[in-house]
Write a protein that binds this DNA or RNA. Structure first.
Lengths: 339, 339
DNA sequence: TGCCCTTCTGCAAACGTGTGCAGAAGAGCA
DNA sequence: TGCTCTTCTGCACACGTTTGCAGAAGGGCA
């Protein structure tokens, strides 16, 4: 059976012991220039590549980090991973990827498999488990960083978007345009992010001393399909809203569809604002006003945090990154100027 | 320093040798029921998880596969990876992910790092290197499967979309609607996929005995930005096309924008057809007629192919999967019926 | 020449697991 | 009891690296 060339093969060719080879390839000062160069030349010529698995066994560090994602096909997630991957690469780490399919059971299994692989650290995006990682963590002794943890409760180390601030700004934007009846189209699963975005919405209303109308709060499931039905609900009200602030862009997409089907014009008849700034948001008709999450950067930050943890430092517990309102063309003043 | 519990720790607790533990945990028939159960109980209680790295060292199989992607943030790529990951998971493999950023140099480096990690197999999506893998392959002796190889020339093992058939169908669809002047908005980098899609377009024209007008062939870069300029070019012609068949959906997105800016209606004034069926295609205005690539499935097929290769079998060299025309609302009959 | 010091090299153990082989323990039978 | 056979267990080596330590080689100095 075929075996890749090992340190021993090279030692034989160079007439030295294999430990000398090992040192020579690490440029150890213990080895004389002459022999080091000779060995390196032979190694190069025979296409030698050190086995990371053997090295990992003795050094007890695999230089791999595990990334748990709900689904890599999710555009939000994939950009976060892009940021993680870049940072990893710059520091000699490799990324092991695993889907959890948003299933807590699977999420645990995946983390177990990461443990078997002896990853040096773990990043989890949009976890539904959240704080339950704390015991796992102490059992495995592997640093874990969560990105946009969806489980209520603080986790030890995390990178979170400032949901409250972002949605407050978005709502304020609508208020400043003159809207008084602003709907909130949320997500009915009670994710952390929905709770926070709703609370930003409320804060903005309160800040402007505007009344809160419970009938203007409806729920979808974060996908565009359900958002259509929710929009119908809002439009069927005796006094429908003049603007809809959506939990996320996918929801907003459904809203735009529903409005389009009813021949309503955006923003002339009704304004729509999303959250996330997915790639698609600049291609809708009209282009969507939304709140941007710097996804790549969040991945990067998570990884930097992890690097610190792995080197024994203790970085700030919870990193929050500011959300940025991106004003496009789906938001404008309401048709009738407010009295 | 902390160490995870090992087979030896368990052996000590169970008063047996560590090799007995090893066998017991593998359910070897060599071990008596009684001792096996005792050992398994202890292992469970102490949260033991076998080290994949130690196992990999002795078995010479790491149960990992490397996936090279141009960018994981690319919606095409991420769905292929999703398929790969699922298949991997079902067979006890883990995915190591690496970005190449479409840079051949980086692509090679990434593959080197996979070799160091001793992955059992490699999948490469949209490679710009293609056939150059052949020498690398024989050097590393690791099975490699390419998905939608962009480098001209056949690679040993690959999964490819049927570009020619797909674009022929798309063009035929336009012809059947009555279009006679159909533009092709290609990609100027000379990728395999562009060449093939163009050739499907030509085949359809020839098949219908329609004349080919060289001025109706223009080029973008596969992104929507450049497609806008290219569309202007087409619209500026003395006798502009009544339909535009685009290299991909991103290009079509640019076209739709350009037409929208000119207040032209789709499909009343001009029809547009894309390729890929990205998620976004069903959300454009109007929803885009396009050619679907079954991305997840392609990832799955690539992985199945790889599994066969890794088990020593020799699966079919080049797998091609049929593209499927998805008719939405961006294509319709031309304004003036043909004479 | 004898001694020490510097510079380099090799030996050997370790990392955690799998596995061929020898041999212990126990059962069955004469 | 003594023998063989079956069933189970432990010893020892292997996988490919890193690294502490011993010790060889060579030079400088008295």
């Amino acid at each position: 059976m075929y075996r890749p060339t090992s340190i021993k093969d090279i030692a034989r060719k160079a007439n030295v012991s294999f430990s000398t080879v090992s040192r020579a390839l690490q440029n150890s000062p213990l080895i004389s220039r002459r022999t080091a160069e000779k060995i390196q030349k032979i190694a190069r010529e025979s296409g030698y590549r050190a086995s990371a698995v053997a090295r990992g066994l003795v050094t007890q560090r695999t230089k791999t980090i595990g990334v748990v994602v709900t689904s890599i096909a999710d555009p939000f997630v994939s950009e976060v991973v892009d940021g993680i991957e870049e940072c990893c690469n710059d520091h000699g780490y490799s990324v092991i990827l695993a889907n959890s399919n948003a299933d807590p059971d699977r999420e645990r299994k995946v983390v177990q498999s990461f443990y078997e692989r002896r990853v040096d650290g773990i990043v989890v995006t949009s976890s539904r488990v959240g704080a339950l990682y704390i015991p796992l963590l102490s059992e495995m002794r592997v640093p874990i960083v969560l990105v946009n943890n969806q489980h209520p409760g603080e986790f030890v180390h995390s990178v979170m978007i400032e949901n409250v601030q972002g949605s407050r700004e978005a709502t304020n934007h609508l208020i400043q345009l003159g809207h008084r009846r602003i709907a909130y189209l949320g997500d009915r699963f009670g994710h952390q992010s929905d709770t926070e975005r709703f609370s930003g919405y409320r804060q903005a209303l309160d800040g402007a001393a505007l009344p809160f109308f419970p009938e203007l709060v409806v729920h979808g499931d974060g996908k565009s399909e359900k958002a259509i039905a929710a929009t119908e609900l809002l439009l069927g009200l005796p006094d429908p809203p003049t603007a809809i602030f959506c939990y996320n862009d996918m929801t907003a997409l459904g809203v735009l569809r529903a409005l389009h089907a009813r021949r309503l014009h955006v923003p002339a008849d009704i304004s729509v604002v999303g959250f996330d700034d997915l790639f698609i948001a600049s291609y809708t008709d009209p282009p969507l006003t939304t709140v941007r999450q710097p996804r790549r950067r969040m991945g990067l930050l998570a990884m930097e945090s992890l690097l610190q943890l792995m080197s024994g430092q203790n970085p700030s517990q919870a990193i929050t990154v500011a959300a940025e309102l991106v004003i496009r063309e789906s938001s404008g003043p309401p048709r009738k100027a407010p009295k």
